[in-house]
Computed example of a mutant assay.
Amino acid sequence: MLSRKPIFPGVIELNFQAGEVLGCSVYLIYDQDEWVLIDIGYEETVDDYIEIIRRLDFPLSRCKALIATHADVDHIQGLAKAKQVLRTEVMSHPNAVKPLESGDALLTLAEIAAQGLKMDMPPVQIEHQIDEGTIIQVGDKKIEVWHTPGHTDSQLAFRIDNILLSGDNIYRDGCIGALDAHHGSDIKAFITSLERIRDSDIEWLLPSHGPIFRKDVAMLNKTIDRVKGYLTMADFGTLAESWPLIDEWEDEVADGILPEGLG
């Protein structure tokens, strides 16, 4: 038997509980003997996580649901396996249903040909679609669902009192989840989601990668300003709103202007 190490009342992060990082953050939310898992990570670590849960003396039959923060492979590849072992149901945002139920390797980033990456993406049935304002009841504990698109169009965050399980929105160092048009990234939506987190009365952020941290408005403002800059930077291709450099180049070509020191 393991001694439980909740980071907040009724909230256990399974990597922290294990004392080693096995993958993305996997949060076990519980009240009385009822519990849910938010994300599960890769298929290869499912057995490790379930063994930890057994040793924490959580009845496997009392798992109310497996909940996907979004449909990226590093968060959800193990869903089908965990669902089979726990005999429970899966919840996700409506935009995550198609890639999860079809096992779409491209939309879940399980396959990236340019990097030689190809992983299995086992399909899994979604019994419940959850969205902005949904309340998930676990015992007497209420989990409020936030839809926080930007990283993906299915990105969810989960509020419990003054904490927010914030998904891939923001990490302790000010980094954000990857922007990729293939899985529904949206820069403007990302800015809105970050501003919502900044302006909320949330005190603690529990991200999907890396350590938990106290909300830092100055850091969030710095990140928001940086992400706003992406709207006019070519690095982000079709996700950008404009590319001022092209306008400058057109003017310089028309006027025959070369850099100082040339011509």
Rank of each mutant, 00 (worst) to 15 (best):
G103A: 06
T148F: 09
V227N: 09
R196G: 10
S200W: 11
I130H: 05
L56D: 06
D255Q: 15
L60K: 06
H209D: 00
E203F: 09
Q137D: 10
D180P: 02
S154E: 07
M91N: 01
N95Y: 11
D173H: 07
E248Y: 14
L100G: 02
S25N: 15
V36W: 03
D235T: 14
D57C: 05
E89A: 09
L156A: 03
A178I: 11
S193W: 07
G19M: 08
G210M: 07
I212G: 08
I50Q: 00
I143V: 14
H151F: 11
H209G: 00
L37G: 02
T223A: 07
D186T: 10
N162I: 01
R172K: 13
E34C: 02
L245E: 15
L28N: 03
A240Y: 13
A82K: 05
L164K: 06
S102T: 13
G19F: 10
I197L: 10
Q77N: 03
A254Y: 09
P259S: 10
M233I: 14
C175W: 07
M1L: 07
A105M: 09
K118Y: 11
I160P: 04
F8E: 14
I163R: 10
I191E: 05
K142D: 12
E101S: 10
I136W: 02
L156C: 09
I163L: 14
P149K: 08
I76S: 01
G261C: 10
I202L: 07
E250M: 14
